[in-house]
Simulated scan of single mutants.
Amino acid sequence: MNTTENPTRVALVTGGSGGIGTSIVERLAADGFAVAVHYAGRAAAAEAVVASAVAQGARAIAVQGDVADEHQMARVFDSVEAEFGGIDVVVNTAGIMINGPIATFDLADLDRMHRTNIRGAFVVSQLSANRLRSGGALINFSTSQTRGQLAGYGPYAASKAAVEGMTLVLARELRGKDITVNAVAPGPVATPLFLEGKSDELIEHFSKVVPLERLGQPDDVAEVVALLAGPGRWINGQTLFVNGGLA
């Protein structure tokens, strides 16, 4: 497809089949993007997100792949480019969180989490660096726990600190390409990933430690992503802590 015949900007959202990713897909669709909803194993959920975006009047497709597998993700990028003519924005929300104390943490769990969160982010960043169109944006996802020092979050925070590091370096490496590279670091957001395994008392605690005295909602994060994906072109090489004022 000739992009001069289709000026619509195109976004690929990894992990778009649930949680924050779904809200981002919906927001970008509302902003006029054509959207590719990436998923690993939740095909039905991804198709439901696609249907919702199409109902908003957007063009949308679902694409499947393991973010840590460079060959599968290259095919994902191929599919999006074949459908829409190119890619302008990649939002890399795909990730897993396994918590526990560092002293007793299962190294198999560490390897599994780091494969998705670090290698996966690296694969997606590498492909984005080579295939985003001029004027594009790569938005990776970190966590406010990289500076929160909360007990039990060490392994997860370590994986996301790596994401921040590679993101900020890549922004400098892409000098001259007119591609912005940033990381979004949410605080406590009411998603299944965050709420799973937590008691009502602990959830209430998290909501009260935030100066705004509530948990974040996926739409709160989607607003920031929409800024970085659209008009926020002067924001580059940054980690944005989206957490309601949490230290």
Results as ranks from 00 to 15, higher is better:
residue 1 M to T: 11
residue 3 T to P: 02
residue 8 T to Q: 15
residue 16 G to L: 01
residue 17 S to I: 02
residue 19 G to A: 05
residue 20 I to T: 08
residue 21 G to V: 02
residue 31 D to P: 13
residue 33 F to C: 00
residue 33 F to R: 03
residue 35 V to F: 06
residue 37 V to Y: 03
residue 38 H to L: 06
residue 39 Y to P: 03
residue 42 R to H: 15
residue 44 A to V: 09
residue 46 A to Y: 07
residue 46 A to D: 08
residue 50 V to S: 03
residue 51 A to T: 08
residue 52 S to Q: 09
residue 53 A to N: 03
residue 55 A to S: 14
residue 56 Q to D: 12
residue 56 Q to H: 09
residue 56 Q to K: 09
residue 56 Q to G: 03
residue 58 A to I: 05
residue 58 A to L: 08
residue 62 A to V: 13
residue 65 G to Q: 02
residue 68 A to S: 13
residue 69 D to I: 06
residue 75 R to H: 11
residue 78 D to T: 11
residue 80 V to W: 08
residue 81 E to V: 15
residue 86 G to E: 06
residue 88 D to P: 14
residue 90 V to A: 06
residue 90 V to N: 02
residue 91 V to W: 04
residue 91 V to A: 10
residue 94 A to H: 07
residue 94 A to R: 04
residue 100 G to R: 06
residue 105 F to T: 07
residue 107 L to M: 12
residue 109 D to L: 11
residue 111 D to C: 05
residue 111 D to P: 00
residue 112 R to P: 01
residue 113 M to E: 06
residue 113 M to R: 08
residue 113 M to C: 03
residue 114 H to M: 13
residue 115 R to P: 01
residue 116 T to Q: 12
residue 117 N to R: 11
residue 121 A to C: 12
residue 125 S to F: 07
residue 126 Q to L: 09
residue 126 Q to G: 07
residue 128 S to V: 10
residue 128 S to I: 08
residue 129 A to V: 12
residue 130 N to Y: 06
residue 131 R to K: 14
residue 134 S to C: 09
residue 138 L to W: 05
residue 140 N to P: 03
residue 140 N to R: 00
residue 140 N to H: 06
residue 141 F to I: 09
residue 143 T to L: 02
residue 144 S to M: 13
residue 144 S to C: 11
residue 145 Q to G: 02
residue 146 T to L: 08
residue 148 G to S: 12
residue 150 L to V: 15
residue 151 A to S: 14
residue 152 G to E: 09
residue 157 A to K: 02
residue 157 A to N: 04
residue 160 K to C: 09
residue 161 A to L: 04
residue 164 E to F: 09
residue 164 E to Q: 15
residue 169 V to K: 04
residue 171 A to G: 12
residue 172 R to N: 10
residue 175 R to H: 12
residue 176 G to I: 03
residue 178 D to W: 11
residue 178 D to L: 05
residue 180 T to M: 07
residue 185 A to T: 14
residue 190 A to T: 00
residue 191 T to I: 01
residue 197 G to A: 07
residue 199 S to Y: 09
residue 200 D to C: 04
residue 200 D to K: 13
residue 201 E to W: 06
residue 204 E to D: 15
residue 205 H to C: 08
residue 205 H to M: 13
residue 206 F to Q: 01
residue 212 L to N: 08
residue 213 E to W: 06
residue 213 E to K: 15
residue 214 R to C: 07
residue 214 R to Q: 11
residue 216 G to D: 11
residue 217 Q to Y: 03
residue 217 Q to C: 04
residue 221 V to W: 01
residue 225 V to P: 03
residue 225 V to W: 00
residue 226 A to Y: 00
residue 227 L to M: 15
residue 234 W to T: 09
residue 234 W to V: 02
residue 237 G to K: 11
residue 239 T to R: 09
residue 241 F to T: 15
residue 243 N to C: 14
residue 246 L to H: 08
